[in-house]
Computed example of a mutant assay.
Amino acid sequence: MREDQPDSTLPRRQLGRALRDAREGAGFTLEQAAREMEMSKTSVIRIEKGHNDKVKLRDVEAFGRVYDLSERRIEELKALAQQLATRSWWQANRHLLPPGFKTYLGLESGASQLFVYQPLIVAGLLQTADYARVIEQPYLPTDTPEDLERRVAVRLRRTAILTRQRNPITAEFILHENVLHTIVGSRTIMAAQCRHMADMSTRPNITLRILPFSAGFPADGNPVLPYVILDFPEGGRGFYTEPPVVYAEATIGSMFFEEIADVKRYHGIHQSLLSATLEEQAARDLLRQVARRYEQ
């Protein structure tokens, strides 16, 4: 799989959305569609929500016939269904990843823009190998040292979306100043991590801002947990642009927010945080200053 090719998570969501729109455009209820397709209502819902890793081409064609779609549109949908067989680059290590994060990786690899806030640790896409190795401590009883290294490798492989030559993703990171002063591993690791972030922030597709301690809680006075807002490229081949999604992390799990109102609220939160951050050059200077302190 090429570095600039999206994972199958995005095509299956696009296919599901296209089939749902076709059903509603044809005036079919979920129950009617399920009856015509001779499948359960739950199966139709799973396909429309993009939950199925694989959708049979004959089912896609049958949906098209039921909804009276044109031959060209049916072929477009079948081509989209064929993309679902694309093997994810992290597939070999899927057993080491939480289910929600596997879905996130698929969306991240197909996104065009990210807005990231991390108040606790360095955002995954900006982590060095040594920092990631400390963060990725074994969390399953069956974990081996090899499993740990595989998870670190997955973290590092993700960064290709920022550095690839063709269509690198645009990313805006906001890190709380607390992240710079929380020692992960050792002072040596932290020094290298801060310098790495400063260097990455010089790339034209990356913006890195620091929310200082003095800013307090700029988002209406409330603490904010880590999140990522994902925007997607414009739809091709007659498909709609995939709506933005928010991936929010908590202590023992994560959630996806897809409702327009929820995504809009997160964008508002992001703007509130951004307005209180240090400017880009000031943030870069602070990173290098903190790195020098760790090196002393």
Score class of each variant (00 low, 15 high):
5 Q>L: 09
6 P>S: 01
11 P>W: 00
13 R>S: 01
13 R>L: 01
13 R>M: 00
15 L>V: 05
21 D>E: 11
24 E>F: 13
25 G>K: 10
32 Q>A: 14
35 R>Y: 01
37 M>F: 01
39 M>V: 13
39 M>R: 13
42 T>S: 08
55 V>L: 07
56 K>F: 13
57 L>F: 04
60 V>L: 12
63 F>M: 04
86 T>H: 08
104 Y>F: 10
110 G>N: 06
112 S>N: 05
114 L>A: 12
116 V>P: 12
117 Y>I: 09
123 A>F: 01
125 L>V: 00
128 T>L: 04
132 A>Q: 06
134 V>E: 15
136 E>T: 00
140 L>F: 15
150 R>N: 01
152 V>Y: 08
152 V>C: 04
156 L>K: 03
157 R>N: 14
163 T>Q: 13
169 I>H: 05
170 T>P: 04
178 N>Y: 08
181 H>P: 02
185 G>Q: 05
189 I>V: 08
194 C>E: 08
197 M>H: 10
197 M>R: 07
205 N>A: 06
211 L>V: 11
212 P>V: 10
212 P>S: 03
216 G>Y: 01
221 G>T: 06
224 V>W: 07
234 E>F: 03
234 E>N: 10
238 G>F: 08
241 T>C: 11
247 Y>G: 02
251 T>G: 00
255 M>L: 13
256 F>S: 03
273 L>F: 11
275 S>Q: 13
276 A>T: 00
278 L>E: 12
280 E>R: 15
286 L>V: 11
287 L>S: 10
